[in-house]
Simulated scan of single mutants.
Amino acid sequence: MFLLRSAFWLTLAFLVIRPGVDMGDAAAALSSEAMARGSQFVAERIEAIECDDLHCVGGKALATAALQTNPLAGAPMHAQPARHPVPHPRPRPDRAG
C-alpha cells in the first residue's frame, strides 16, 4: 500500500511540476480570459436593461464606462511602473559640511 500511495503522489507532483510549463503564465492567461468573459457577460446584462428615465440611462453609461476601463485587464500591478516615484531628500546645504 505504501508503494501505491508513493507512486500516486509522485505522479501527481510530476503533473503539477512538470518541465516546460510556466505556472505564472498559465495562471495569468486564465485570469485575463476569465476577466474578459466576465466583463462581456456583465456588459450584455447591462445592455439588456430597458431604461425610461435619465437616472437609469446615466447609471448604464457609468457602468459601461467602468467596464471598459478595467485596471485589471492590463499588466499586473507589480509589473507596472510606480505612479508616484519615491521622493528624494533635499540636498544638504553647503554650510552643513
Results as ranks from 00 to 15, higher is better:
Phe41His: 13
Glu47Leu: 09
Leu12Val: 07
Ser32Gln: 10
Asp94Gly: 15
Asp53Glu: 03
Glu33Arg: 13
Leu4Asp: 09
Ala43Phe: 00
Ala13Val: 02
Leu10Ser: 05
Ala27Thr: 10
Pro76Asn: 07
His84Leu: 12
Met77Gly: 06
Ala66Pro: 01
Gln68Thr: 11
Leu54Pro: 00
Gly38Met: 11
Gly97Asp: 05
Ala79Glu: 14
Ala36Trp: 10
Asp22Thr: 02
Ser39Trp: 00
Asp25Cys: 03
Gly97Gln: 08
Ala29Lys: 14
Thr64Glu: 08
Asp94Ala: 15
Cys51Asn: 01
Gly20Gln: 03
Glu44Asp: 14
Ala13Gly: 05
Ala79Ile: 04
Ala48Ser: 14
His84Phe: 15
Ile17Val: 09
Arg37Ile: 02
Gly97Met: 07
Gly20Lys: 02
Thr64Gln: 13
Ala63Glu: 02
Asp53Arg: 00
Arg83Val: 13
Asp25Asn: 07
Val57Gly: 00
Pro89Trp: 04
Glu47Gly: 04
Phe2Tyr: 09
Arg45Lys: 15
Leu30Phe: 15
Pro89Met: 09
Met1Ala: 12
Leu62Phe: 11
Leu54Glu: 13
Asn70Ile: 05
Phe8Cys: 06
Pro71Met: 07
Pro87Val: 10
Val21Ile: 11
Ala65Glu: 15
Ala48Gln: 12
Ala36Pro: 06
Leu12Gly: 03
His84Cys: 06
Arg5Glu: 08
Glu50Gly: 04
Ala29Leu: 07
Arg37Asp: 09
Ala36Lys: 15
Leu62Trp: 03
Asn70Lys: 08
Phe8Ala: 14
Leu10Ile: 05
Ala36Gly: 13
Thr64Ile: 08
Met35Val: 15
Leu62Glu: 11
Gln80Thr: 12
Ser31Glu: 15
Cys56Gly: 03
Ala63Phe: 03
Pro76Thr: 05
Glu50Asn: 10
Val86Ala: 13
